[in-house]
Design a protein around this nucleic acid. Structure first.
Lengths: 352, 352
DNA sequence: TATTGTTGCGGGAACGTTCCCGCACAAGCC
DNA sequence: GGCTTGTGCGGGAACGTTCCCGCAACAATA
């Protein structure tokens, strides 16, 4: 830490005094480094007088322990890698998605609460690119189906935490949402509000979540005897998704409800369907899978299905800490619930 | 790294074989650790045969160097802390702002390009909370005026990179945008498009950027002999800012242009002014300071003033690397330009 | 053959901690 | 007063690398 201030071996300004080490404090006090270490860490059998003297001297000299040396001794770095598998093509855009922004910040927060820090890594990268980071584990958020990174990490014997697609692999842990249940809940809600032709908008992705959603949607339609209408967005991002939404509402069989399972700005989606003559919610019930808080500020506010990134993050870190700290036979995976935030965009205004 | 696989001292599954070290490879090959180290690192004077043998054996045994030990030896960790000063009240919400999302990801990307990794830290925290992270430097994005963290870090002799407010402090480096120039450019543009009563919407913040903007706006109005109208948003976030926008357009003297220097979703701002009977751009020219890409998808598309988080990030990392690697008398600070993306929302449609 | 130079490799210290010991010395007990 | 038990502190190894040396062996030159 503070290489530029280390002055011992490291390139430092010639005037910079060398960093004060434990032995320096020891020499100053006339004690041994063992004693000073114990004094500062509150361990060992020490007389109160000596303990206080060591502490006082350390403070006076501006002693700060070297984190790297501690890590080496401890055998771990309390550092967690964080990669997102999706967006592999554009390695650093994932933070622009509200879902991943919340997932990332919540993960960092939860990790720090347990004494671990999060290291941001580029999406779609391989372990080799950051092999000389002392990572205790790596979180791979939403890997794509053919992602090599998970096997790469497992081969390197680094504990991996990711979504359910890794279920059964030794060393791999997972946290996921119950996508099929969420889809059913949403579609049931739409049907209860009168929808008979709910369309699904989905990005063209190989994420497990998206294939789960598609399967659940089809199954639900078949079970209900309702027609299915799926429109695939060419890519993620507001442009393609909005275009897919427009495709959906201008298609041959006009849907009476839209379930957008692709991250797009709710106000933008609303504007798009309106451009094509729909009134929400009278002509079209609208539900977006989104963590975007703009949804509550539109008129009407947009019903969202929240994937609960905060809950996912917390459950994941809980699992990670349990696994890393060996708090006994921890489960390999955890399922967290989603949350359907019903707002005016999916509520029939006319009496039912 | 890989504590759970270390097996030597660390709590590991009883079946996990201990991690293979350099000496293990050395013993296996019959060479010394010095030789093996040199072979793997491509250093030293070694016969090709020996070098190849060492490499092959290391690969076969699955040897991976211990990152922590390397760091200790090297005297630095190639790890950069990243805190954002704003949002101190809600430590982890900063990623939900498109500006900070882009700043963060661009910083991480630029850092990694130079071999440094970014560690996410909670906004508004003090150094003590993560003192045992081996950070070579810390980036403090947009500190608030009374922020203790910068002095805290400087006292701990950790190099700090932040905005211009630290100018002149030894050990502190800065990157900033030329806020006054950006304000002038925007207001000149609005005036050229016919605006005579441009109002300013600003959050109630102590960030240097915001006070610079306010000062520049006042100066410009005074210089042009135009009336000033400033509306303060109670806080950051879409709700308060949209309310401030509504206050601005419903105020006594109706503005003919709106310069929103607070992050709010452009489609939401557009919808808000429309709710109050304004047509954009005919009744009201609109410019938002925003990195939100939804701005290009609205109708009309919204003119934005981009603060260039990518450029800020790259310039910052450049400076950081120069300072950390002592590539000679690096400048203490750098100013990067902003970018006014003129779109239909601030272009008079009627002939001029 | 003696002298110098070069090549190939290994010994061992160092990076800055923590922690297992051991060793004095004082206090308690019969 | 000898015995055990306990207290207070220090010596030194260990964590896993890298890198400065030194030292052989051999080639080149006189």
């Amino acid at each position: 830490m503070t290489k530029a201030a280390s002055g011992r071996g490291g390139p430092s300004s010639p005037t910079t005094p060398p960093r004060v080490r434990l032995v320096d404090v020891a020499r100053e006090t006339g004690l041994s480094k063992t004693t000073v270490s114990a004094a500062l860490n509150g361990t060992g059998r020490l007389s109160p007088a000596v303990r206080e003297k060591a502490r006082e001297t350390a403070r006076r000299m501006g002693y700060r322990p070297n984190a790297t040396a501690r890590q080496l001794r401890a055998g771990r770095a309390r550092l967690i890698g964080y990669v997102v598998g999706e967006f592999a093509g554009a390695p650093w855009t994932f933070l622009e998605s509200p879902y991943f922004a919340q997932l990332t910040s919540s993960t960092a927060a939860a990790a720090l609460k347990h004494g671990y820090a999060l290291v941001l890594l580029p999406a779609g990268s391989l372990h080799g690119e950051w092999a000389d980071l002392p990572l205790d584990a790596v979180i791979v958020a939403d890997p794509v189906a053919d992602d090599r990174i998970v096997e790469d990490l497992l081969a390197a014997r680094i504990p991996v935490f990711t979504d359910r697609s890794v279920e059964g692999r030794p060393g791999a842990h997972w946290v996921d949402v119950d996508a099929p249940a969420a889809v059913r809940e949403t579609l049931d809600h739409l049907k209860a509000q009168g929808a008979r032709r709910p369309a699904l908008v989905l990005p063209d992705s190989t994420t497990r979540f998206h294939s789960d959603v598609l399967a659940a949607y089809r199954e639900w339609c078949a079970g209900q005897g309702l027609p299915e209408q799926v429109v695939l967005a060419a890519a993620a991002g507001n442009g393609p998704v909005v275009r897919a939404v427009e495709d959906a509402v201008t298609g041959a069989d006009r849907p009476d409800a839209l379930f957008v399972v692709a991250e797009a700005s709710p106000p933008l989606v609303l504007e798009a369907v309106r451009r094509h003559g729909y009134d929400v919610p009278d002509d079209l019930l609208l539900v977006c899978v989104s963590e975007d808080t703009t949804a509550i500020h539109t008129q009407p506010p947009v019903t969202t299905l929240s994937l609960g990134p905060r809950e996912v993050a917390e459950a994941g870190i809980e699992l990670l800490v349990a696994a890393l700290e060996q708090v006994h036979p921890e489960p390999a995976g955890v399922l967290v619930p989603t949350r359907l935030e019903v707002r005016a965009s999916s509520l029939r205004t006319a009496g039912d």
